[in-house]
Simulated assay, not measured.
Amino acid sequence: MAARDMRASDADRERIAELLHEAVSDGRLTLEEHSERIERVYQAKTLGELTAFTRDLLPEEQQPFRIDGRALLALFGSSKREGRWVVPAKLPVAALFGTIELDLTDAILQRKHITLDVSALGGRLRLIVPDGVEVRITGRTVLATKDLRNPKPGPNAAEGPVVEVTGTLLLGSVKVVRPKRKRFRLRREA
C-alpha cells in the first residue's frame, strides 16, 4: 500500500482542521474557502486526501505530515526527519561525513517491520524511537560504533514494531535513543 493510501486518523483530521482555522484567522483563506475545506477534511479517508488541504498554505517543511518515501541524504551536513511522517517499509539513508536524525516518536510506520538501508562513510545515524519499538542493527559495520542507549524496548516489544538497520557503515556511528520518561515527584508540604 502506498503511504498516500493509508487511512487517516481523527487526530490527523483535527491537525489539518487546526491549520485551516489558523489560515482563516490570519487572512490566507476566506470564510467560504475555509468552510468548504473543513467539510472535505472531515470526509477525507486517506492521508493523501488530507495533504491537499494545506499544500498551498504551508511550505513543505511545515506541512503537518509527510508521506513521501524519498531517501534521506546528508553530505557534509545534516538531514532530519521528525514530527508526523509516514515511514515507508524500506527507507534508503546515506550519510557522507554527515548526520541523519530520524525521530520516530510521532511517525506512522507503514509496516510492522521497517528496514533502514544505510550507506554511510564517516557518517552518523541517530534514531529516536518510542517505547515498544525494537531496533535491530544487522548491517555491516567497519570501524563504527553502535550506541543503544536504554536498549530495552519495553514490555510489549514482542508485539511491537521492529526497525532494522541494514547496509554498510564505515567509520561512523549508529545511536538509538528513547525519549526520557517523565518522572512525577510528590512534594511534601511541611
Rank of each mutant, 00 (worst) to 15 (best):
K90N: 13
A23R: 02
E36P: 03
P88S: 03
V163I: 12
S25P: 08
A158H: 10
K182R: 15
V129Y: 00
P59H: 04
A8T: 09
Q63K: 14
E32G: 11
A17Y: 08
R4I: 08
L171I: 11
V133F: 00
F53E: 00
G139V: 09
K112F: 12
S25I: 01
G154N: 11
L169K: 02
L102V: 09
K152M: 09
V87R: 05
R181Y: 09
E189S: 15
A52K: 14
P151T: 04
G27M: 01
R126H: 11
I114P: 04
R28S: 08
R136F: 01
I16T: 04
L47N: 00
G77N: 11
N150R: 12
R13A: 08
F65A: 00
V41H: 05
L143H: 13
I128S: 06
V177R: 04
K45G: 09
D12S: 09
V86H: 06
A44L: 07
E61I: 10
F65P: 07
V165N: 01
I38E: 07
R136G: 05
T46S: 08
I137C: 11
P155G: 09
R111Q: 15
R70T: 11
T99Y: 12
A3V: 03
K90E: 13
S119T: 12
P155L: 04
V174T: 08
L20P: 03
G83H: 05
P155Q: 07
P64C: 02
A120Q: 00
E49V: 02
Q62R: 14
S78H: 14
P151I: 04
F65G: 02
E18D: 14
W85S: 02
R13E: 05
A17E: 08
R4M: 11
N150Q: 14
E159F: 10
V162K: 06
E36R: 15
E32A: 15
R188M: 04
I108W: 11
S79Y: 11
D10Y: 01
P130K: 01
F76I: 09
K175P: 06
D10T: 13
T145V: 06
G123H: 04
L96T: 10
D106L: 15
Y42K: 06
G172Q: 03
V135E: 03
R124W: 09
R4G: 08
R7C: 00
S79M: 06
A74P: 10
L102T: 04
G122Q: 01
P130N: 04
L109P: 05
Q110E: 15
V177P: 01
R126E: 11
N156D: 15
F76C: 09
R111N: 15
A2Q: 12
T54M: 07
E33I: 00
L20H: 05
K112C: 10
I128D: 00
L57H: 12
Q43H: 14
L50I: 11
I100V: 15
R126A: 08
V133Q: 02
D103G: 07
D103S: 10
L31N: 13
